[in-house]
Computed example of a mutant assay.
Amino acid sequence: MRFYPLLVIITGLLLGCSYLPEPTPPVSGITLTEDRTSIVVSAAGSTGSTTGFLFYPGALVDPHAYLSLMQQLAAAGPGYRVFIAKVPANLAVLQPEAAGPILSAHPEIKNWVIGGHSLGGAIACTWVARRPASVRGLVLMAAYPAKSDDLSGWPGGVLSIYGTNDMVLDRSTLSTAYARLPSSTITVPITGGNHAQFGAYGDQAGDGSASISRADQQQQTARQFVSFMNTLGL
């Protein structure tokens, strides 16, 4: 992950640039609803769930591009709901507090896990740094905390997952950033995965070529996510 220069962000805003979602087939037993704050992905029987996963999309990526992965997470889990945050211009850095209205609108959910892809993951780290008691866990997909966000003393659980063919993620910076995460952080490299295949929006500039399919990368991600949730007792 590279933090996008101001020029890139401004250009994206002016030109309305975004990575658009590819068609996502529906998953049996999964319901999608959305409002101005989020897309909610719910598995059958999850209406009364007290566990939720809130996800920040990557920079300039339409939130609907993550439906393929998030449907798998919801389907694989024991009834929790997944919330994909909507942010201005598809840039979470413009609304790092996007999680707030979602959490407030769902007081029935007592156990929250937050996460994100790429820049979205960095913003999720910022949320945890500012409100450490609001969530139980943090899931980083090709992401790491900014230098200003030291989570090394946070008691929550962290899953860091990335593709070994990812050329967008700055691997040396990722390695350094682990010092700002808890020592109990679970790190999972997906062999042959790349940056863009956590979503479904086509190729990403500067990314490496994946040697596994997007379906395979997302299935592996879903398995690791459910295993991580189990370690949290959720």
Rank of each mutant, 00 (worst) to 15 (best):
D62C: 08
V61P: 03
T47W: 10
V61W: 01
D35P: 02
F55H: 07
T47H: 14
F55V: 03
F53S: 09
G58W: 02
V61S: 03
L67W: 03
S38N: 11
D62V: 10
T37L: 04
Q71K: 11
G58P: 00
R36Y: 04
S38G: 11
L54Y: 05
L54M: 14
L60D: 03
I39K: 07
E34F: 05
Q71P: 09
S38Y: 09
P63G: 07
T47S: 15
E34N: 09
F53K: 09
R36W: 00
S49H: 07
A74H: 05
S49N: 10
L54V: 12
T51L: 01
V41S: 03
T47E: 15
Q71E: 15
S38P: 06
A74M: 04
P63F: 01
S42A: 15
S38W: 02
R36D: 12
P57F: 08
H64I: 05
T47P: 07
G48A: 14
H64D: 11
L60Q: 06
A44Q: 15
P63Q: 10
F53W: 11
A43H: 11
L69K: 04
S42L: 09
V61E: 00
S46H: 12
H64R: 15
R36K: 15
G58K: 03
S68E: 15
V41H: 00
S49G: 13
G52E: 02
L69E: 06
T51G: 01
G45H: 11
T47A: 15
T47K: 14
Y56T: 04
A65P: 03
M70R: 00
G58R: 03
L60Y: 02
V61F: 02
Y66S: 05
D62M: 13
A59S: 06
A74K: 01
F55N: 04
L60H: 00
A44V: 12
Q71V: 09
H64W: 10
S42T: 14
G45P: 06
A75E: 10
Q71I: 07
G48H: 14
I39P: 04
F55D: 05
A43I: 08
F53D: 08
A74E: 02
A44N: 14
P63D: 04
A75K: 13
T50V: 13
L67F: 03
V40G: 01
H64N: 12
G45M: 09
Q72N: 11
A74F: 01
